[in-house]
Amino acid sequence: MIQATTKQSIESKPRKYNNKLRLKNGLIGWSFIAIATAMIGLFYFYPMAQALILSFQSGAGANLQFVGFDNYLRLFTDPTFIAAVKNTVIYLIIQVPIMIILALLISVLLNDKKLKLKGFFRTAIFLPCITSLVAYSVVFKYLFGTDGIINQLLINVSLISEPIQWLTDPFWAKVTIIIAITWRWTGYNMIFYLSALQNVDNSIYEAAKIDGANAFQQFFKITIPMLKPIILFTSITSTIGTLQLFDEVMNITKGGPGNATLTISQYIYNLSFKYTPDFGYAATVSYAIVIMIVIFSIIQFKVAGDKNA
């Protein structure tokens, strides 16, 4: 709109040729980004705004009425929502650190210049990342079945005498989900650390060795500080991913037993498409994820920032 009016006013003064040319170039620039901007507006920001409006409405199916903050108050007394938040936070604070530490450990080991078979190890450990979330989840569901191969192997080596109820015990079901996600994503994070490590100047380690620093000191005093930006990046992406966890839980445990493995995304799905649809309340629950993503991202930035000081 503003573009159009300025264009007219300039065209009425033809002697300002340079301005007109600049404007034409400006319009060309905008036209390059127009489709993408419109698509993201339509498929991201418009739904996001709609969800906010919906979160103040309630009712079954299309019969929605404004209810003010009722939905938000309902969150605090909804046992299923509280269970879903608790599960999601448990996955987050247990799985993300384990995965990042494992990925760091593997990448430091693989960064050894004299290591043989490096390419083989790297490819093998990265391999889980090529699987689809649904496919690997179904595979894990059968691997961890009561009669599944994991239980059989554990019994064969006498680590356990009774099969573990990996999928039907509330505690072990969570463990199964955490093992599954860690299997799928450790290699992914490892690749980021490996490429960052390759940019670290080896002479720093040489100097540290001369000063008598052992492997642990080198790891904590050199490697971790050098990789801090990338560790922050991967922990934020992992956090956002975990807060949105859906495919794995849906296909491994369906959220059960009871609601022991239910995630927030899955609860939103159930509220909208499994139970009598309550789109308004489901939208309120979805805003809970948005708020959690913002809070956790701020915390991670703060933690990383403090170490700087």
Binding site: F43, Q50, Y269, S272, A282, A283, S286, Y287
Partner: peptide, 20 residues
Amino acid sequence: ILLLSMMIPFAAMMIPLFRM
């Protein structure tokens, strides 16, 4: 602004998209 869309969880857009 476009980059901010990376922070939006899909679950939050799913219902409005479905209605759309």
